[in-house]
């Protein structure tokens, strides 16, 4: 039962990643692209935790924590670069 639910969730988040990728490519403005990249990070975190449940290990929690940190910092720094022309003033 858990296996089929895992496969369903894997499929959902993978389709979501593909939709986000479409928005990254098509997205008419820079804010759309940044938003789509941020959503891709969140979906990738969900996929990593699902992989941790699938394999039964806890090693992927650290990976997803690092992924969340890097995604947040990159999103904020890119927005700041667009807003101010500089990241650390």
């Amino acid at each position: 039962m858990i296996t089929s639910a895992l496969i369903f969730a894997f499929a959902c988040f993978s389709i979501g990643l593909l939709l986000n990728l479409w928005r990254v490519i098509v997205g008419p403005q820079k804010s759309d692209r940044i938003l789509a990249l941020d959503t891709m990070v969140v979906n990738a975190i969900a996929l990593l935790i699902l992989l941790g449940i699938w394999l039964g290990t806890g090693i992927f929690f650290e990976v997803s924590m690092l992924f969340a940190l890097v995604g947040f910092v990159s999103t904020v720094s890119y927005c700041r670069f667009l807003l101010r022309g500089d990241i650390i003033e």
Partner: peptide, 24 residues
């Protein structure tokens, strides 16, 4: 536990798909 985990996984998958579909 199996039922609860399955319910939460299905809810999470649906919500993630809806969020990404809304982005498009």
């Amino acid at each position: 536990a199996e039922i609860t985990v399955t319910v939460f996984l299905v809810i999470a998958g649906v919500f993630g798909l809806v969020g990404s579909y809304g982005l498009v």
